[in-house]
C-alpha cells in the first residue's frame, strides 16, 4: 500500500491541492478549451457553487434525526422520479425547503439528482441538475414563511421552479453545443423545450397541490415528536 509517510508533506499537499492545484487546473482548462470556454466555465462555476454550499453544510453540526428526515425526503423524491411523465421531485424539494429550511431543501434537491442518476445514468448534466433542484429547495426555504401562508404564491413558485430548471438545463446544452452568445439557438432551444417546461411547471403545481398539506402536516408532527 502506498502511503505518504511524512506528515509535513501530507500537510503541504492538503493545502496545495485545494488552494493552488485545483484553481490552476480550472484556469488552465479555460485556456486550453478556448473554443468552448463558456460551456467549460459554466460547468466549473456550477460545480464550485455546489461545493461551496456543501462545505458550509460539512462545517455545521447536523443532528441524526434531521439527517434521517433529509434522507427520507430524498428517497421519496428518488422513488417519485420513477412515476411516468409527471415528476414530483421539485415539489418534494420545495416542501422540504419550506418545512425544514433552505439547507435541507438544497440537500434533498442535490442528492435526488445524484442518487436517481445512479439509476438514470450519470453525466455532465448531473451537476446542473444538482444545482437547479438544490436552488429550488434553497429558495423555498428562504421564502418559507410566505409560501406557507399563501397558496397562490406557492403555485407561482412551483411554476417558476419548473421554468428555472428547464432554462438552466437548456442554456448549458446550447453553450456546449455552440459556444458563444447568439440569440437564435437559445430561442430555438427554449421553444423546442417549451412542452417539457410546461410539463415541469404543471407537474410541480399538481404535486404541490396534492402533497403540500398532508406531507407538511406529517413533517410538522415529526418535528415535535423528534424535538427538532
Amino acid at each position: 500500500m502506498l502511503v505518504i509517510k511524512s506528515s509535513a508533506i501530507r500537510k503541504i499537499l492538503r493545502i496545495l491541492i485545494p488552494f493552488f492545484v485545483i484553481p490552476a487546473a480550472v484556469l488552465l482548462g479555460a485556456y486550453v478549451f478556448e473554443d468552448k470556454v463558456y460551456a467549460y466555465i459554466s460547468l466549473v462555476i456550477t460545480i464550485l457553487a455546489i461545493v461551496l454550499f456543501i462545505s458550509g453544510f460539512e462545517r455545521r453540526e447536523t443532528g441524526s434525526r434531521r439527517m434521517v428526515i433529509v434522507v427520507v425526503m430524498t428517497v421519496l423524491a428518488v422513488i417519485g422520479r420513477f412515476i411516468p411523465i409527471i415528476k414530483p421531485v421539485a415539489a418534494i424539494t420545495v416542501i422540504t425547503g419550506v418545512f425544514l429550511g433552505g439547507e435541507s431543501g438544497f440537500l434533498v434537491g442535490a442528492m435526488t439528482a445524484v442518487i436517481s442518476n445512479f439509476f438514470w445514468g450519470q453525466g455532465p448534466w448531473t451537476p446542473f441538475q444538482m444545482f437547479s433542484w438544490g436552488m429550488i429547495g434553497l429558495g423555498a426555504g428562504l421564502l418559507g414563511r410566505h409560501l406557507r401562508k399563501s397558496q397562490p404564491l406557492l403555485y407561482i413558485y412551483g411554476m417558476f421552479a419548473g421554468l428555472l430548471f428547464s432554462v438552466i438545463m437548456d442554456v448549458w446544452t446550447v453553450l456546449w453545443y455552440n459556444d458563444g452568445f447568439s440569440w437564435e439557438p437559445y430561442l430555438a432551444a427554449i421553444v423546442s423545450a417549451a412542452p417539457m417546461t410546461v410539463l415541469y411547471a404543471v407537474s410541480n403545481v399538481i404535486f404541490l397541490a396534492l402533497l403540500f398539506k398532508p406531507v407538511g402536516k406529517k413533517l410538522d408532527r415529526i418535528k415535535t415528536v423528534y424535538g427538532i
Binding site: F57, T62, V68, T74, V75, M111, I115
Partner: peptide, 10 residues
Amino acid sequence: KLGLLISMTL
C-alpha cells in the same frame, strides 16, 4: 457528512 447522507439514502 454528504457521503454519509448518500450512503444512507442508498
